[in-house]
Amino acid sequence: MSYDYNRAMTESPTEKPASAKRVRGVGRLLIAVYGVLALAATGRSFVQIVRAFDEAPLAYALSALAAVVYIVATVALMRRSIRWYRIAWITISFEMLGVLVVGTLSLVDPALFEHATVWSIYGSGYLFIPLVLPLLGMWWLARHRVAPVSEGRA
């Protein structure tokens, strides 16, 4: 699947210059998928914590933390300011680290993560989206730097 990046950036003639601060093109899809993942992680951690937080406080706290980070990342991707750009990098890097560390640990020492988290086995319960999404997110951020002066370049 090739996302014809240039076309995506130049299309939408109906778009007004006033919305230059808004994210355009395929970035919208990235935000939408992040939103869905944030919803999925929040839903799961909500169920885990309501049902039996005592069973696995570590795994469930991690789930909740992951959910919050996904929500923050979704918001950060939507905003085009230098501060939110940094927050996006931090949260997405954190996700990458989380899925790699927890994914590896869940394979090496399954007893440690008996209770599933969004990152177990590299996010296999979520079609490996948690593994792929941070990579796409970092690619997107690298391609769309926010300059400190002319902030809001789409």
Binding site: A8, E11, S12, E15, G25, V26, R28, A32, V36
Partner: peptide, 18 residues
């Protein structure tokens, strides 16, 4: 709602993703 607010190709993709 997204599709109504932003009438772009990506809104169609997002409908599909949903």
């Amino acid at each position: 709602f997204w599709a109504l607010v932003e009438r772009s190709r990506w809104s169609t993709v997002i409908l599909g993703v949903s």
